[in-house]
Write a protein that binds this DNA or RNA. Structure first.
Length: 873
DNA sequence: ATCCTCCCCTAC
DNA sequence: TAAGGTAGGGGAGGAT
């Protein structure tokens, strides 16, 4: 752990040095460009920054001149997050591999664009049109729903909501972790100081007065994030109406069982709160209560139902909004440019934003989401003597340079005011809300801009004749509280006056963990639905393990097709018009164990007795989270779980027993192919476990208390009963006395039991293989890490160990299941090359064993084999 | 009073 | 075709 940290710091220092050097060169470049401003001929390359790699024609120098004269930027070094295009005429394969994720374009792109007098699409000038060495696998093209095994990962890979949600938690954790390190050096503050000296930006506000008036908060929000990030690689679309969506146009087909009109009618009816069908309605009354518009308005039978995740300001001017359906948006603006998602780019930009601020300015950051955060500026302003306005200007300038994306910032004396200021500043602007002008400012703020006021609350307020904060402030606290409840009433009362005493929240502590899918849920029978629920439980387990916490209550959330709803939803594989149910169950002990969660969930599911084909959405949530402890009651169960993955009882099956309500776990002999995997046979140096095990776990393993895979708490009955006779005595001797006695007692109590069992009221068949469970250990391993391991493994070992073999095999099969087939392919090729150089036959056998497993998985999932080498030279 | 469960709402 | 997740806050109403 420690070593890793030092390494990181060292790297950051080096990175900082390079960064400084780059900036210096760029400054010179900018100065030169500015000095020669009479030579600037056009802005053709505005937003484009190139890095020239190797020999080109026109030469690097000429390309540099072309860029400078026409609004572009020339980078002397490749800067992965900033350089938009790499220019090259040819590249050695090794270098190509290194750079292949970037846009590599022929130099003619620049010269031709110049000739044409406009920016041409770079796509026609890509250096590699067909990517060499890519496997051509014919995947069956059919719609996937949740009954198919690869659905969940494929869905997560394509869900924008999943992405923004997971990114938000990621950055909250990032801030948390960053604040734990001892950072004293903030180079950005020095840059800001220097910049103020040089530019002497004249501020209308004096510096001292605000510093006296308490805290200053800044709210930073990227402008239409997905669009801006997407346009980094598509600068030719800047200043056009652009929208990010899955759809490519109005290509929707009419499907059987769909009745859009009927379905939309049901939504409107529910929103209006109609219970009875009087038919006779006072038209004015309806007008008043009816929602302003629903997102399904203006959609015809064959219009695309895809959602617009984000649209540019040019599109917003036309009336297009985020969340609008593509069909409707295209009617409003037929020239609307639809661009696909680029998840990797969003992650890159967001990461740059956060690390830039935290490394260079302050750790007093509250992460709101991937593109939005609050800063407490007190320390920055104090040390730099900058005014809030200067800080905002400089910070926005740097963020734009680093990310190529615009952002807006608002500054105020509390979070609410900072946020409202940002709204006013957008797009690409900043606004400092002076303490003196708060009253005036608030009067005209729309109530829907107040945090917490959404569709429902906004509508309710509008029926009270309130639409601005000014109007809202006329209502008494009592009125608001009796109308909306105590807390909501009070916060409305304060917020409409610009008051907000909320502190920035730096310490992130999750209160719940959940996994939910309300798309693609179409099951034929109970087996399919149960199978999917199991996968969701696995997902929840994984997320709990990630944060090293356990949950004590399980909540199941279901969406069920409403009786009146058409058989098929208007949106392809959507949930349609549904009834929602949530039901929770308290466990006796907190856990992260997928099986135990499944037990609880399945019990509820069976009680509810819902026709699987009517399910449209399933969610599993864990509440009452607890940190894992290695003390008290938790220890013994940690130990037992440890035993579980260390005993030779590798393969256990849960057999159905329909006569009584118990599921009996019986030991079955392990299949040959799984022999000895993940047992202590493996724990020699260089073996997989030591290679990947996080350092902290090595520590706890020393005390034989915990493994990476440990489940600290097991409710009711232990999942696996281990008998005294199965335990290695030296194992017990190594333990502290108190723990040893505890465990010995437990083991003795188990001595007269001859089967492994868990309670389960619902009879069902489950297969639990310990190897399978253990292989989850490696799910988090990065592909690059795996490649590194494989290289080391093959090069340094004389003969392959079976456990390593199985691990690699499992890892590859998991990749394939995650639809990362191309990564798996690459790893197999690498493996082939390495093994080709080995003399020992056992290595070749290893290769064939692994390929056999892989092909089996491929056939199961895709009805296709992977094209890999089958003979050695 | 305070807690729990089952919602609903909101935000990104 | 399309990828409608996830976490947190809070209210209503009942149990303790």
């Amino acid at each position: 752990m420690k070593r890793k940290r030092n390494k990181t710091n060292g790297f950051e220092k080096w990175g900082g040095y390079m960064e400084a050097k780059k900036t210096k060169l760029e400054e010179q470049f900018a100065e030169k460009a500015a000095g020669d401003s009479n030579h600037v001929k056009s802005q053709i390359f505005k937003g484009i920054s190139i890095f020239v790699n190797g020999y080109t024609l026109p030469s690097a120098n000429e390309l540099k001149r072309m860029m400078m004269e026409n609004g572009g930027i020339y980078h002397h070094y490749h800067r992965p997050n900033i350089t938009t295009h790499i220019i090259a005429s040819n590249l050695p394969t090794a270098k190509l591999k290194l750079l292949k994720q970037f846009k590599i374009v022929k130099p003619e792109w620049i010269s031709d664009s110049l000739k044409e007098g406009k920016l041409l699409s770079y796509e026609g000038y890509l250096l590699f049109i067909d990517k060499p060495n890519q496997p051509k696998i014919d995947f069956p093209v059919r719609a996937k729903n949740a009954s198919e095994p690869t659905f969940l990962s494929e869905f997560y890979n394509n869900s924008r909501l999943h992405l923004i949600s997971t990114m938000a938690t990621t950055f909250k954790h990032l801030v948390n972790d960053a604040r734990k390190r001892n950072q004293t050096d903030y180079p950005g503050r020095q840059r800001l100081k220097k910049w103020i000296e040089q530019n002497g930006v004249k501020d209308m506000l004096s510096h001292d007065s605000e510093l006296d008036s308490g805290k200053i908060f800044m709210h930073i929000d990227m402008d239409c994030f997905f669009v801006s990030a997407g346009l980094v690689e598509r600068p030719e679309l800047r200043n056009l109406p652009v929208a990010v969506t899955h759809a490519k146009g109005n290509l929707s087909k009419k499907r059987e069982g769909v009745d859009r009109g009927a379905e939309f009618g049901l939504y409107v009816k529910r929103w209006r709160g109609d219970d009875d069908e009087n038919g006779e309605e006072d038209e004015e009354e309806v007008q008043e209560i009816r929602p302003r518009s629903t997102k399904r308005d203006g959609i015809d039978e064959t219009d695309s139902m895809a959602e617009i995740a984000c649209c540019s300001y040019e599109a917003r001017k036309i009336g297009i909004k985020n969340g609008m359906l593509v069909g409707k948006a295209l009617k409003m603006c037929p020239t609307l440019k639809l661009i696909p998602y680029n998840f990797e780019q969003y992650k890159r930009v967001a990461h740059t934003l956060y690390t830039h601020i935290m490394n260079d300015y302050t750790l007093d950051v509250e992460a709101v989401s991937c593109d939005e955060l609050y800063l407490d500026c007190s320390h920055i302003l104090e040390t730099t003597k900058a005014s809030p306005f200067e800080l905002a200007t400089f910070l926005r300038k740097e963020i734009k340079e680093k990310t190529q994306c615009p952002c807006s910032t608002g500054i105020g004396s509390n979070c609410l005011l900072a946020r409202l200021a940002t709204k006013k500043a957008k797009p690409d602007g900043q606004f400092y809300l002076e303490p003196g002008s708060v009253m005036d400012f608030m009067k005209n703020i729309d109530i829907s801009d107040i945090p917490g006021v959404g569709r429902t609350l906004g509508h309710k307020l509008s029926t009270l004749g309130v639409s601005t904060c000014g109007e809202l402030s006329a209502l008494s606290l009592e009125t608001l509280q009796s109308e909306f409840g105590n807390k909501t009433g009070l916060s409305l009362y304060k917020h409409c006056r610009g008051e907000d005493d909320r502190k920035l929240n730096y310490e992130y502590k999750p209160k719940s963990v959940s996994a939910e899918v309300n798309y693609g849920i179409r099951f034929k029978n109970k087996e399919e639905s149960e199978n999917f629920v199991r996968q969701l439980c696995d997902e929840v387990e994984k997320r709990l393990d990630n944060i090293e916490m356990n949950g004590k209550t399980v909540t199941l959330k279901l969406m069920i097709r409403n009786a009146e709803a058409p058989k098929e939803s208007a949106k392809f594989l959507g949930h349609g018009f549904c009834d929602n149910i949530t039901k929770s169950s308290s466990l006796t002990k907190s856990t992260s164990n997928s099986l135990l969660i499944f037990q609880a969930v399945n019990k509820i599911l069976n009680q509810l007795d819902i026709e699987p084909s009517d399910l449209r959405g399933i969610g599993i949530q864990m509440n009452k989270l607890e940190n894992r402890t290695v003390t008290g009651a938790g220890r013994i169960e940690n130990f037992i779980s440890n035993m579980k993955s260390n005993t030779k009882t590798n393969h256990i099956s849960l057999n159905e027993n329909t006569d009584n309500d118990k599921i009996v776990l019986t030991k079955v002999s392990e299949p040959k192919s799984l022999q000895s995997s993940f047992t202590h046979n493996c724990n020699k140096p260089k073996s997989v476990i030591d290679f990947f095990k996080p350092k902290e776990d090595l520590n706890s393993r020393k005390h034989n208390i915990k493994t990476t895979n440990s489940k600290s708490n097991i409710p009711h009955e232990p999942l696996v009963n281990i008998k005294m006779s199965q335990v290695d005595p030296s194992f017990l001797d190594a333990l502290p006395t108190d723990l040893r006695l505890e465990i010995e007692n437990e083991l003795k109590a188990n001595e007269n039991q001859n089967s492994l069992y868990i309670e389960n009221e619902n009879s069902s068949t489950m297969e639990v293989t310990m190897t399978e469970e253990s292989s989850k250990l490696y799910q988090h391993v990065q592909i690059d890490q795996m490649k590194e391991f494989i290289e080391e493994w093959v090069v340094t070992e004389n003969e392959p160990k079976l456990c390593d073999n199985i691990m690699v095999s499992k890892y590859l099969c998991n990749l394939i299941r995650d639809t990362k087939t191309e990564d798996a392919y690459e790893i197999i090729r690498k493996l082939y090359r390495l093994i080709n150089n080995k003399d020992h036959l056992a290595w070749k056998q290893s290769y064939f064993d692994i390929v056999k497993d892989v092909q089996e998985t491929m056939l199961n999932l895709y009805d296709a084999k992977m094209k890999v080498e089958t003979t050695f030279k």
